[in-house]
Amino acid sequence: MPRIISNHCIVEDHWQVLTLAADETPATVTLPAAPVLLPLAVWLARRDEIIARYPQPGVWLDSDEGPEALAGDTDRFAVIAVNFPKFTDGRSYSSARLLRERYRYSGEIRAIGDVLQDQLFYMRRCGINAYALRADKDPEKALAGLTVFSDSYQAAADQPLPAFRRHATQEPA
């Protein structure tokens, strides 16, 4: 069973990511047995059916799909995954922050796709708390990426106050 990083620990993971094959459509794709991360389009097309079928569904957003489409529904999900088709595609950082800070989603936000050690710190700051590393990478080694910096200047999902509100007066180094 694949292993992921979840809240700074390595855990066995049981979620599958459903992607549509070329000949499948959101309306007709067979919904597998739980647990599964569904494409946003499937959720939007078959919301009632999914709610009836899964007690706690999971969904994944591609980098060009904003979390706006989940507004009002976020609390239904056990996992919302945000995809990084390439690690240089930074859109899902914004999606994660919006989920945490605007839509107040408190469940798991999982990074999927081209997820690599050297982006984990920024992902964590944006509110992502689970990381399904790219298959060829060792999650044990990647753990170090979560704690590269001990502080940060900006407010973000992990730290509501910018540095200037936390240590207003400091001696020079």
Binding site: G90, Y93, Q119, Y122, Y153, Q154, A156, A163, F164
Partner: peptide, 13 residues
């Protein structure tokens, strides 16, 4: 400078 340094959301524009 401080705001933009290691801004977590805007490192991969």
């Amino acid at each position: 400078r401080q705001w933009s340094t290691f801004h977590p959301e805007f490192a991969f524009l």
